[in-house]
Structures are given as structure tokens and as C-alpha cells.
């Protein structure tokens, strides 16, 4: 469904030019949930922004359903691919009610029947009608993230790009949002690309994942490999150890991978 080949992204010019993504490639099947894992500066979010079309100065090949994507995207693409952002406090317009935020895409695509669509999608994300006319500041972080998911769903997309969707949330809320995301994917047969720094979240959500470091692909592994510890790359092993908590002796063996 999604194929990325030889993706390269540069930021800046001349001396300060930064090769943010180096020859990254992967494929995602329909209905699959694919993970992109890495630390800050690994380029994982940049890859997502290239696919979504928020970044336009990339080089390489991105295909969706066998159709090669250009730098600019059309309306049909918007209906097919939607995105959920990391910060639930920054991703909703502070002066628009939830109702207005959700109606906006319906109006843009002239789909009609806005009221019913909003009610249905609010139900889908488990919020219900009483939240409809609130402002974002009247919602908790988890509720806001549900609204962000609802906004992505209202156009009935086939692919949802998730950029650290739970890293700003408390763990108990994270569990609720992850459960919601999984239910929706199964119900609507969606394809996910999930970006996260947290190996546990990715392994909970995805069967295959790509580990990135400093713009480069480290390796593509399956969830089972992660579970059994059958990992060849040292970088991934270190990430795995670090995710398990504070261990004084293990920390002394940490390396800086270039």
C-alpha cells in the first residue's frame, strides 16, 4: 500500500546543511501497522512529514497504491491519508469549538451531512455528544487526543500517520488512546504508520518496525524478533535495554552510535 524508496531530505544550505534522512526505504501492506522508532534527531518524524506532504523538498520515491506521489498533493490524497500529531494541546485550534474543528474537513471536501458525520465520529472515538460544543481548553489531554483522532477519521481515510500520538499523555490515558487506535484500525481496516521513541508502545501496536538513528536506517525487524531478543544491531539492543529502566551496570556500557 505504501512504498518508500531512497528517501533523502536536506535541511538548510551550505555549511549548515543537514542531511536529515539518508536513503530510507520501507513498504507497508494494507491493513498493517508499521512502526518508526528512533531517538530525537533520528529523522523519524521527517519521514512522516514527507509522506503527508507537509515537507516538500524531499528526493526519492514515495508510492501509495502503486501511484507515485508528487511534491504537492491533491484533494483525493487528503481523503486517503490523515495524520494525528503529538501535542494534544497544540493540534486543536484554541478558538474553535470541537464541533467547528470537526466540521471543517467536511466543509472543505463538500461532503454534506456535517451534523451526522460529527456525531458519528465523536461516538467512534468514545467521546459522545456532550463534548461537541466545548472549546479545547475545556478538555483534558486524553480527550483532546481523541478529538484529534476523530478529526483524522471524519474523512474516512485509509491511512493514518501517527506522530508520537501518546508521548505527551499520562500512562493511564496512553493505554486508553492506544486501545482506541487499535480498535479503530481493526474495525475500519486502516493502515497505520506509527512514529514513536518508545519501543514498548511500538511493539504493542505494530508487527514490523524500522529503527532509525541519525537519519539512517538501522534495521527493519519484526515484533517477534523484538520479543525474543533476536536482534543483530547493537543500537537496537541498547534502546531495548534503556527502555527497561535504570540499571547502573548497563548504562556504563552505553555507546554513542554514529
Amino acid at each position: 500500500m505504501i512504498a518508500v524508496e531512497n528517501l533523502n531530505v536536506f535541511f538548510g544550505h551550505g555549511q549548515t546543511r543537514n542531511h536529515a534522512v539518508k536513503d530510507v526505504g520501507f513498504t507497508v501492506e494494507k491493513g498493517e501497522s508499521f512502526g518508526l522508532v528512533g531517538e530525537s534527531g533520528s529523522g523519524k518524524s521527517t519521514v512522516l512529514n514527507c509522506i503527508s506532504g507537509l515537507l516538500t523538498h524531499w528526493k526519492g520515491r514515495i508510492e501509495i497504491d502503486g501511484v507515485r506521489l508528487m511534491q504537492t498533493r491533491n484533494m483525493a490524497f487528503c481523503r486517503k491519508v490523515q495524520m494525528v500529531f503529538q501535542d494534544p494541546y497544540g493540534s486543536l485550534h484554541p478558538r474553535h469549538t470541537i464541533d467547528r474543528t470537526l466540521k471543517e474537513p467536511v466543509k472543505i471536501h463538500r461532503l454534506g451531512d456535517a451534523n451526522n458525520r460529527v456525531a458519528r465520529v465523536l461516538d467512534d472515538v468514545g467521546l459522545g455528544a456532550k463534548f461537541r460544543f466545548r472549546f479545547p481548553h475545556q478538555l483534558s489531554g486524553g480527550q483532546r487526543q481523541r478529538v484529534a483522532v476523530a478529526r483524522a477519521l471524519i474523512l474516512d481515510p485509509e491511512i493514518i500517520l501517527l506522530d508520537e500520538p501518546t508521548s505527551a499523555l499520562d500512562v493511564s490515558i496512553q493505554a486508553e488512546v492506544l486501545n482506541l487506535l487499535q480498535d479503530i484500525r481493526r474495525e475500519k481496516n486502516l493502515t497505520y504508520i506509527l512514529v514513536s521513541h518508545d519501543l514498548a508502545v511500538v511493539s504493542h501496536m505494530c508487527n514490523r518496525l524500522l529503527v532509525m538513528n541519525r537519519g539512517k536506517t538501522v534495521e527493519t525487524i519484526t515484533r517477534n524478533q523484538l520479543k525474543s531478543g533476536a536482534i543483530s544491531e547493537k543500537y537496537t539492543t541498547q534502546l531495548l535495554v534503556a527502555g527497561k529502566g535504570y540499571d547502573r551496570t548497563a548504562i556504563d556500557q552505553f555507546q554513542d552510535f554514529r
Binding site: R73, Q82, M83, F85, S91, P105, H109
Partner: peptide, 8 residues
Amino acid sequence: KAVKLQGA
């Protein structure tokens, strides 16, 4: 960004 991705 979100509203851009919706094609506004």
C-alpha cells in the same frame, strides 16, 4: 498543519 492536510 492539520487543516492543511485536510486540503484547506
